[in-house]
């Protein structure tokens, strides 16, 4: 080969760089680490809160309910890492103990929402014309009401409390998931894959169980992760309004609500519970996006 040939178009530099920057699976050089940093931080944050939910006593230095009027409104410092509230309770310990109800409510509400959606979506997508029509109208009614309003109506009917919050948030998120599951199932129902299975002599229920549902659920799992963070925010919103866990219990939304009275005096009372909520929501968003790209590969 001759060596005097000029290099012509090196291609579009930005695009080329982008593809070059994606680390190959299994590599952990400094460059790959930098690209994966958001994902690693998110995983670490969620792992911390899950650990806090599992063994709060191992992580929290104080009793979350212990009142100590002498130390009220202590700013963040060496004695109290994130400060204390109006009754001298340790904010850090309360956040740690608050992660269990928050995550539980988020996970349970997402599970209820997805479960209900799976039922409704499958009925609508696979049950034929009239069931699809019926479920579609029900979903439209649910969609017509703003989500928070729907949750408030349900709580007004069933009375406040943790259990009610879970069901209320689950109910509110279900219609969105149901629509997506229905669309997935309808797209798969008419796919060549299902046709091929029919030609091989499979029954409808077997095709639903072995081909349609597993393939429909993979994208829904991504949404579920995204929904987890959203459900935590919803649950906190309801607690903030005084409709979740009763007052002395450590719950992030309730802590926000209690702290807002003293915002000018003790910013840490609202800032740190708020930060916890933001961290969980953001981390679950980053994780769901990573799941999505992993699924697309």
């Amino acid at each position: 080969m001759s060596n005097k040939r000029p290099v012509l178009s090196p291609g579009e530099p930005v695009l080329a760089q982008r593809t070059a920057n994606r680390p190959a699976p299994g590599t952990w050089g400094p460059k790959a680490l930098a690209v994966r940093l958001p994902l690693l931080l998110s995983a670490a944050a969620l792992a911390f809160f899950v650990l806090a939910a599992l063994v709060p006593n191992a992580l929290a230095p104080f009793d979350p309910l212990a009142i100590n009027p002498a130390a009220a409104f202590s700013p963040p410092g060496s004695a109290h890492l994130l400060g204390t509230d109006e009754s001298g309770r340790d904010i850090y310990s309360r956040i740690i103990h608050g992660s269990r109800p928050s995550l539980l409510i988020g996970a349970a509400a997402t599970a209820i929402g997805l479960g209900l959606a799976l039922l409704l979506g499958t009925i609508a997508g696979f049950g034929g014309k009239w069931l699809d029509f019926g479920v579609g109208r029900i979903l439209e009614v649910l969609f017509a009401l703003p989500g928070l309003l729907l949750a408030l109506v349900f709580i007004a009917l069933a009375g406040p409390g943790v259990g009610t919050t879970v069901v209320a948030v689950g109910l509110t998120t279900a219609p969105g998931y149901a629509r997506m599951i229905r669309a997935q199932i309808i797209a798969l129902r008419t796919s060549p894959m299902v046709e091929a299975a029919t030609v091989l002599g499979r029954s409808r229920t077997r095709i639903l169980a072995t081909h349609i549902l597993p393939n429909a659920l993979a994208p829904i799992a991504v949404l579920g992760t995204l929904g987890l963070g959203q459900a935590v925010v919803w649950a906190a919103s309801l607690s903030f309004l005084g409709l979740g866990a009763p007052p002395p219990a450590p719950e992030w939304g309730a802590m926000l609500s209690a702290g807002r009275t003293y915002l000018a005096l003790a910013w840490w009372m609202t800032f740190f519970p708020g930060l916890a909520i933001v961290l969980v929501a953001a981390a679950s968003t980053v994780l769901s996006r990573a799941l999505k790209t992993a699924g697309a590969r």
Binding site: S2, K4, R5, P6, V7, L8, S9, P10, G11, E12, L15, A16, T19, A20
Partner: peptide, 15 residues
């Protein structure tokens, strides 16, 4: 590559 669309990451050489 005759119309400059060989794509990102490509190197085109010719006499």
């Amino acid at each position: 590559s005759l119309i400059g669309l060989a794509g990102p990451g490509s190197a085109v050489r010719a006499n």
